[in-house]
């Protein structure tokens, strides 16, 4: 059993035509960082609010460490949350923000409070800033304070709702590394929500891809690039070519040729052969022929839209290769960059 178990969670907001969560199932392991990834409006934040107790689900169960959380008020759950906005108490110092929960909520003794605050300031790399007002620090420091404030409650589970989305890219990378370091040091289980595929891939040990209020695939980040569960998942992770094909056992036959694909969930019969745009190898010498229809330069790479035995195929080639519209390209496909999904699987 995981640290956090979500079972068949359904949630419809009052007045909304569609449910925000449609039977959400998810299991988060002790000590891991699991990222819920999805586009805006797919139900990510609602899922976090249900877990934290800020929203109550219509049906389904939330269990943490084997204990039912359903019906428990947010303050009674051993769960802390970091929001997209830092929500620091503006007229407090950094240290007062950090120790807000034990000072106000638990009435911790002054000596212990000072010791714990000092330790947290160091862990958050905020040493020397404890006496500064919350209004006097940068955006990145604000999110560190917010993270430290949440960790001061010693939560069993830390929820992070797009905490880095307002930061610039450099700062974002630094804070991602910092969050991973905190996770390693404290062993706190983290549920991290983001809409940024790369951010999720960098920070999480597993990703749960959410679409239309349910999880469509939960796996290690590399699996989304290598083994997407559905066409929608594949599209989300940059697969651009979906070619009708036939599958028998592990063998998939398509206009591009035959591929042995082990472990795909799609059954025998009509399937879609997924080909990554970077899959072309042996350019100029391979056995597959395609005619270039259009050329889209994209910096260091160029995307060629081609016609390959009646199938449309997008290929992304680096700048060493140059072709014009109407020209023929010969290439092979890297078998590591193909996959197959069911042709008829549509998630609503």
């Amino acid at each position: 059993m995981g640290c956090l178990e979500l079972t068949d969670i359904v949630k419809t907001y009052r007045g909304a035509a569609e449910p925000a969560l449609r039977g959400l199932n998810l299991s988060v392991e002790e000590g891991e960082i699991l990222a819920i990834l999805g586009v805006s409006g797919c139900g990510k934040t609602t899922a976090l609010k249900v877990v934290s107790g800020l929203e109550r689900q219509d049906s389904g169960h939330v269990a943490l460490g084997g204990q039912e959380m359903d019906g428990l008020a947010p303050e009674k759950r051993p769960i802390a949350m970091v929001f997209q906005k830092s929500l620091l108490f503006r007229n407090m110092t950094v240290a007062e923000n950090i120790n807000f929960a034990p000072r106000i909520g638990r009435g911790m003794g002054k000596k212990l409070l000072a010791q714990k605050t000092g330790e947290m300031l160091e862990l958050m790399q905020l040493g020397g800033l404890g006496g500064k007002r919350a209004t006097e620090i940068s955006g990145g420091q604000e999110q560190r304070v917010s993270l430290g404030r949440a960790l001061m409650t010693e939560p069993k589970l830390l929820l992070l709702d797009e905490p880095l989305s307002a930061l610039d890219p450099g700062l974002k990378l630094a804070l991602e590394a910092h969050i991973q370091e905190v996770n390693r040091k404290l062993g706190t289980t983290m549920l991290y929500v983001t809409h940024d595929q790369k951010e999720a891939t960098r920070i999480a040990s597993r990703i749960a891809l959410m679409q239309n209020g349910r999880i469509v695939q939960c796996a290690k980040p590399q699996d989304f690039y290598a083994k997407p569960a559905t066409k929608q998942v594949a599209e989300f992770f940059g697969w651009e070519n979906f070619i009708p094909a036939r599958k028998r056992g592990a063998l998939v036959s398509s206009p591009l040729g035959e591929f042995a694909i082990e472990g795909a969930a799609a059954g025998d019969g009509g399937v879609l052969l997924c080909v990554r745009p970077e899959a072309a190898t042996e350019i100029g010498r391979g056995r597959i022929k395609a005619v270039v229809r259009s050329v889209l330069p994209q910096g260091i790479e160029t995307v060629y839209e081609t016609d390959c035995s009646g199938a449309r195929l997008k290929l992304s080639l680096n700048m060493r290769h140059s072709f014009s519209a109407g020209e023929e390209i010969r290439f092979d496909i890297d078998p590591q960059m193909v996959w197959c999904v069911a042709a008829d699987r549509v998630v609503i």
Partner: peptide
């Protein structure tokens, strides 16, 4: 409301949230 929700997830009870 946002600050109150933040305080709730930090374990601060209803009355303390109201006053603080």
């Amino acid at each position: 409301l946002e600050y109150e929700q933040q305080a709730a997830t930090l374990g601060i009870g209803k009355w303390r949230r109201f006053f603080f």
